[in-house]
Amino acid sequence: YETDHQDYCEVCQQGGEIILCDTCPRAYHMVCLDPDMEKAPEGKWSCPHCEKE
């Protein structure tokens, strides 16, 4: 199925295993987040940009 999420990391602009924000189209590698994540979040997750809003 098609999503509106970007298929690359917002921080480093590379693809790969990325996690998707449930609020906006941004996507991130877990290691590119500050602080980085050990494992993928369970349930709904909002990226740092959305958390600030």
Rank of each mutant, 00 (worst) to 15 (best):
Q14E: 15
A27W: 05
Q14R: 14
C50G: 03
K44F: 10
I18P: 03
D7K: 09
G16Q: 12
E51I: 04
T23A: 03
D34T: 10
V31Q: 09
Q6F: 02
Q13Y: 08
P48R: 13
D22C: 08
H29S: 02
W45Q: 13
Y8T: 15
E2N: 15
H29Q: 01
Q14P: 01
Q14D: 12
H5D: 01
P41V: 06
V11T: 14
C12T: 03
C24F: 00
G43I: 03
M30P: 05
Y8I: 09
A40N: 03
C47K: 01
C47D: 02
C32G: 00
K52I: 02
E38A: 05
A40M: 12
E51P: 11
E2Q: 15
K52Q: 08
C9R: 01
C47H: 02
C32W: 00
C24Y: 00
Q6R: 07
E53W: 13
Q13A: 15
V11K: 14
D34N: 09
H5K: 10
C32N: 00
T3W: 07
Q13V: 11
C47G: 00
E51K: 05
E51F: 03
C47T: 03
E38Q: 06
V31D: 11
E38G: 10
D22P: 01
S46R: 08
P48Y: 09
R26G: 08
G16S: 13
R26S: 08
Q14L: 03
C24Q: 00
A40R: 07
G43S: 09
R26H: 05
E10N: 07
L20V: 11
L20E: 11
D34S: 07
C9D: 01
Q6Y: 05
V11L: 14
C12Q: 02
S46P: 05
A27N: 07
Q13M: 14
P25L: 10
G15V: 06
D7S: 12
L20K: 05
E38I: 08
P35Q: 04
Y28T: 04
M37V: 13
C9M: 02
C47N: 02
Y28Q: 03
W45K: 02
E42G: 08
S46E: 10
W45N: 10
Q14T: 05
G43W: 07
L20D: 14
G43K: 11
E38V: 10
E38N: 06
Q6V: 04
P25M: 06
A27C: 11
C50T: 02
H49S: 06
D34Y: 08
